[in-house]
Simulated assay, not measured.
Amino acid sequence: MLEIRNLHKRFGDTVALDGVTLTVEPGQMFGFVGANGAGKTTTMRIAMGLLESDAGEVTLDGGKIGFDQRVRIGYMPEERGLYPKMKIGEQITYFGELHGMTPAVARRATDEWLTRLGLSERAGDFVQDLSLGNQQRVQLAVSLVHEPKVLILDEPFSGLDPIAVDTMAAVLVERARAGVPVIFSSHQLDLVERLCDSVGIISAGQMVAAGTVKELRQKGNRKLRVVLEGADPSWADRLPGEVVNVADGEWVIDSTDDDQKLLAAAMNAGRVVRFGFDEPSLVDVFREAVA
């Protein structure tokens, strides 16, 4: 289990982190979302020991993270850390050895991941000759070759085509199902909503919302959708709150008024075909949380 407690970090007069706390359980996929500069990368770098926090702590399975724990983590930085003039297969094997694998074991693991990620035929190519998507597949292989106990990935889906996204997503889901805590940051909130068990939303260095996707959506601002037949369009003009006529005979209502009063008004206006609330998407929740 990866625990980040009350992290604080300043860069001069800029407050990068202001009490960030989150927990990623074994087998859980945690989506870390926020605007550019919100503090996601700083948090991940501190978790990896690449930066020191001003206060707070990061623990793995209850203990502070040192060298022995860090080599158990698979890390994909936002700025991809590959050697452009090194062959793919040699590079993955090299990183496996850096994590303590013997050369023979690292080579076997390299072959397995090259096959899994569709890169076997490119094993002898240089990284600089690959497309961005294939470079990211190599970076993923580097983060997985040593069978990490934790995965920390900073914008792993950035710039990928849909097929590459599906490949990477399948690997991350597989690792999570094997009991590995997985945390990744992304601006693709539809992808986060589809893949993640829990989500943390960070804004200006503070965690402004956290929980399961279901919990966050339930806390969000639900909007009432009403479909009527035979209603005068002006019926909704007298309703409280924001009312939008989204289509012929269909209205979306954002109101704190009693829903039974709204239902009575709709029934008086015409034949009610639909009357129900739309759960907010993660995008809606994000906009509310950072507003």
Rank of each mutant, 00 (worst) to 15 (best):
E112T: 13
E112Y: 08
W113F: 14
L114D: 02
G118E: 12
S120K: 14
E121I: 11
E121H: 15
A123P: 06
A123Y: 04
G124E: 14
D125M: 12
V127Q: 10
D129M: 13
S131Q: 11
S131A: 12
G133D: 08
N134V: 07
R137C: 07
R137D: 03
R137Y: 06
V138P: 01
V138C: 12
A141V: 12
A141N: 08
L144K: 02
L144T: 03
V145A: 08
H146T: 04
H146L: 07
P148C: 11
P148Y: 09
L151N: 03
L153W: 03
L153S: 04
D154L: 09
D154H: 07
D154P: 06
P156F: 03
P156A: 11
F157Y: 06
S158D: 05
G159D: 05
G159V: 04
L160M: 07
L160H: 03
P162V: 04
A164T: 04
D166N: 14
T167G: 09
M168A: 07
M168R: 01
V171E: 13
V171F: 00
L172K: 03
V173F: 05
V173K: 14
E174M: 05
E174T: 10
R175K: 15
A176F: 04
R177C: 01
R177L: 03
R177S: 08
G179N: 05
V182M: 05
V182H: 00
I183K: 04
F184P: 02
S185K: 01
S185D: 03
S186K: 00
S186C: 01
H187W: 06
Q188E: 11
Q188M: 12
Q188D: 11
L189K: 00
L191M: 08
E193L: 03
R194N: 10
D197G: 01
D197C: 05
D197W: 02
S198M: 09
S198N: 15
V199E: 00
